[in-house]
Design a protein around this nucleic acid. Structure first.
Lengths: 144, 144
DNA sequence: TATATTTCCGTGTATATACACTTATTTTAA
DNA sequence: TTAAAATAAGTGTATATACACGGAAATATA
């Protein structure tokens, strides 16, 4: 293949985002290691704490995640008692909520998350970090 | 939990990156659908085409990916004849190379990738897109 | 030269991700 | 009121991801 084309591929937005997400995930997972939570689980708990008890569709939408992925990701959290199902009148709906234990896990993980987060902010600087979040949001809205 | 703390969590660099990577991945995968390649496989092939035949460690490093992940990701590509092992004097080393068929698959996927890529560039604009790539690179170097 | 060390890589296991398809329930329409 | 349509969610299957651990081969050292 032509060198020109191959060089173009190095700018792939998808590849660059995925690569960065992998490395940043490892950093956050490492920071959260002693909590027993992965960053994905931490985020799920934090989202549930923010929006309150919710159905699968709503929660998946909030996380920008496929509904079926959410179903799988909830399993470990439910097994460990960090989230629980709540009864609902509509029997099609499944409503999950964070438990007291889940809140405790979230609070225990918070200072470790802050360490990892701070490192990113320091690396980029506040301005560039803010720009990054804005850009990511624009991108998310633009590609869907 | 306090509302202040919960609001802070919405700025999680890891969560924002992962969420965006998920959505952008879906967009690229959708664009590449008819090629039978996932964007991760497309990126792997493109990287191999760029750096040439290489060992697992080197390729994993180039992809910012764990070596064991690479081993698994190569399986489907090898099964489909898009990459192949090359003999090496050092029997510890495993050297993989993109095949003729792999190059053909890459070339066939190229215009579809360009469509997805162009959409991102249009959404962000060239300047902001360039800034994003710079920021991601800074972040990768900073967290490792 | 024999052994210790280093290097390079794969496996076992667990989570993360999503598409295609199916099931159950509710709502709508005939 | 009953059947069709819409809604909400789970399963089967496949890829993606990485840590802990283990094995084989090359290299360094005693």
């Amino acid at each position: 293949m032509e060198a020109t084309v191959l060089a173009e591929l190095r700018f792939c937005a998808c590849a660059n985002l995925r690569k960065t997400a992998r490395l940043v995930t490892q950093a956050y997972d490492d920071a959260l290691k002693e909590t027993g939570l992965h960053c994905s689980q931490f985020t799920l708990l934090a989202t549930l704490a923010q929006i309150g008890p919710s159905g699968m569709g709503q929660l998946a939408e909030a996380l920008g995640m496929d509904r079926t992925t959410l179903t799988r990701n909830l399993q470990a959290l439910q097994r460990d008692g960090l989230v629980e199902d709540q009864p609902d009148g509509d029997k099609r709906r499944r409503q999950v909520a964070i438990t007291t234990r889940g809140v405790a896990a979230l609070e225990a993980a918070l200072p470790l998350w802050q360490q990892a987060q701070k490192r990113v902010v320091v690396v980029l600087g506040s301005d560039q970090f803010g720009d990054l979040l804005d850009t990511l949001k624009t991108l998310r809205r633009g590609v869907r």
